[in-house]
């Protein structure tokens, strides 16, 4: 591989992509038209700059692509970064979009009779088993995690388990499912992430992109 090998930026599908794209464009990157075509099956996109390409993958996969150096740059929420805790990922810039929080929720009727200080073991449905385990372990509670990929809010209603750990933005989904937020775990926002080895071996190029995104965020 030579120094002028092109860079790859991994973007997450779904929720935060719409908020991130204006920043990407302000940083001077315009993807090819297929990027905005919902019918396109393309996964990898060229941009107006020949030295950098884009891929669009699931939000958890952004972290994996960047950690292994398959993409040198990426956008990922700190929920994903906390869950994997990859030592090969740096998060040098808060993009200040995609804001929400990670919280523990339980059914409204449970809250009154529940004393968290007495727990020694809880069963939790979540997309974030590592964060959940760490959060509860820090206060001396063993968390048994049931890994789900979505629709966590259904789990308490259907008796899968009584508590969930999930992202909350407005709280509407929780409310609609009779759940209330009982503990705050972390504030979440999208971060620009970079691969460690790429930053060390190509500091000028990667540094320039971090600066462009910083200007895009400051100008927002």
């Amino acid at each position: 591989m030579s120094a002028n090998e092109s860079l790859m930026l991994a973007l997450p599908k779904g929720r935060i992509l719409g908020e991130v794209m204006p920043l990407v464009r302000r940083a001077g990157l315009e993807p090819e038209p297929a990027f905005d075509d919902p019918d396109s099956r393309q996964l990898r996109f060229a941009t107006n700059r020949s030295e950098i390409g884009l891929i669009r993958v699931r939000s958890f996969d952004v972290a994996t692509f960047v950690a292994f150096g398959a993409a040198q740059l990426g956008v990922a929420g700190n929920d994903v970064l906390m869950e994997f805790d990859y030592p090969e990922i740096y998060a040098p810039l808060d993009l200040k979009v995609g804001r929400c929080r990670l919280a523990v929720a339980e059914p409204r009727e449970m809250v009154a009779g529940d004393d968290p200080a007495r727990w020694s073991h809880v069963r939790v449905a979540t997309k974030y088993p590592e964060i959940t385990r760490r959060h509860f372990a820090a206060r001396g509670v063993q968390a048994e995690c049931i890994k789900l990929s979505g629709a966590m809010e259904l789990a308490p209603r259907l008796g899968l388990c009584r508590r969930i750990v999930d992202l909350v933005s407005t709280g509407q989904t929780l409310k609609a499912n009779g759940l209330v937020e009982v503990e705050h775990i972390a504030d979440v926002s999208a971060r620009l992430v970079v691969n460690r080895a790429a930053l060390k071996t190509r500091p000028e190029e990667i540094g320039t992109w971090i600066e462009r995104f910083r200007e895009a965020v400051d100008g927002a």
Binding site: N78, L81, P87, I89, Y90, A91, L93, D94, S189, R191
Partner: peptide, 10 residues
């Protein structure tokens, strides 16, 4: 600092 998490450092 280990994660170069600028937001957390700030």
């Amino acid at each position: 600092l280990d994660r170069k998490d600028a937001a957390a450092v700030a």
